[in-house]
Every structure is written in structure tokens, then in C-alpha cells.
Simulated assay, not measured.
Amino acid sequence: MSAAKTKAQSIIDENGVVVFSKSYCPYCKSSKSLLNELGAKYYTLELDQIDDGSAIQDALQEITGQRSVPNIFIQQKHIGGNSDLQATKGTLPALLKDAGAV
């Protein structure tokens, strides 16, 4: 397993809510804004601000089949991107509670 894939997987495993993001991405901002509105504690990794960001993005594609950001996980379950997160608005508070994020 590549170092990037190991790193991505351990971040997913160790955090209730993870947003793999890029600092300039409007969809990422929208996802983080929704999580902030709900008072969620979440781990963000800004892939454009770290040396191995591109490798981690490749690893996420291997893990999830999704290369785009945001790439969101709740309780180690792949949620998807911003539109997927927005679509869970009704159940999101319960998901976040189960993940210990609120």
C-alpha cells in the first residue's frame, strides 16, 4: 500500500468526520459551511496545501472511486462530495451525533 493511501486511510479511521478539501474550492467551502452550521467537529485536510496532496487525491480515488473534492467521510463511511452531503441534510444531524461529532 502506498504511503499516501496509508495516510488517507488512517485519517479516515481516526476521525468521526473527515473532509478532504482544497482551500479554494467553492464546493468544499459549502460542505464545511454546512458542517459548521450544525456545530460539527471534523477533520479537514486541504490537499492543495500539503506536499503529498496529489498523491492523497490519487489514493482517495483508489479507496472510493471519487477523485474530486470535497471527499467526505462520516464514521469511516464514504458520503461522497458536496451534493451528496447536502442531500443528507435531513439525516445529517443524526449521522454527526452517531459519529460523536456534535
Rank of each mutant, 00 (worst) to 15 (best):
V19W: 07
V19P: 01
V19C: 02
V19H: 00
F20N: 07
F20P: 06
F20R: 05
F20V: 05
S21D: 04
S21K: 02
S21F: 03
K22Y: 10
K22P: 09
K22C: 11
S23N: 00
S23Q: 00
Y24Q: 13
Y24S: 11
Y24W: 12
C25L: 05
C25N: 10
C25R: 08
C25G: 13
P26L: 01
P26Y: 01
P26A: 00
Y27A: 01
Y27G: 02
Y27H: 02
Y27N: 04
Y27K: 02
C28S: 07
K29M: 08
K29D: 06
K29I: 13
S30M: 07
S30C: 11
S30E: 06
S31K: 07
S31P: 06
K32L: 04
K32M: 00
K32N: 00
K32S: 01
S33G: 13
S33T: 12
L34W: 11
L34Q: 11
L34V: 12
L34P: 06
L34S: 09
L35V: 09
L35S: 02
L35E: 05
L35F: 05
N36S: 15
N36Y: 08
E37A: 15
L38S: 09
L38A: 06
L38Y: 07
G39P: 13
G39R: 14
G39S: 10
G39Q: 12
A40V: 01
K41I: 15
K41H: 14
K41F: 11
K41S: 14
K41N: 11
Y42R: 01
Y42Q: 05
Y43A: 09
Y43R: 12
Y43S: 13
T44K: 11
L45H: 15
L45K: 13
L45M: 14
E46A: 04
E46P: 03
E46K: 05
E46N: 00
L47C: 02
L47G: 06
L47Y: 05
L47E: 01
L47H: 07
D48K: 07
D48C: 06
D48L: 07
D48R: 08
D48A: 08
Q49M: 14
Q49A: 09
Q49F: 14
I50K: 13
I50H: 10
I50A: 13
D51M: 09
D51Q: 09
D51T: 14
D52G: 08
D52Y: 12
D52E: 06
G53P: 10
G53Q: 10
G53D: 12
G53I: 13
S54W: 14
S54I: 11
S54R: 08
A55T: 15
A55C: 14
I56E: 04
I56T: 04
I56V: 03
I56K: 10
Q57M: 01
Q57F: 00
Q57S: 04
D58M: 08
D58Q: 02
D58R: 05
D58F: 01
D58S: 03
D58V: 07
A59D: 02
A59H: 04
A59V: 04
L60A: 05
L60P: 03
L60M: 04
Q61S: 14
Q61M: 08
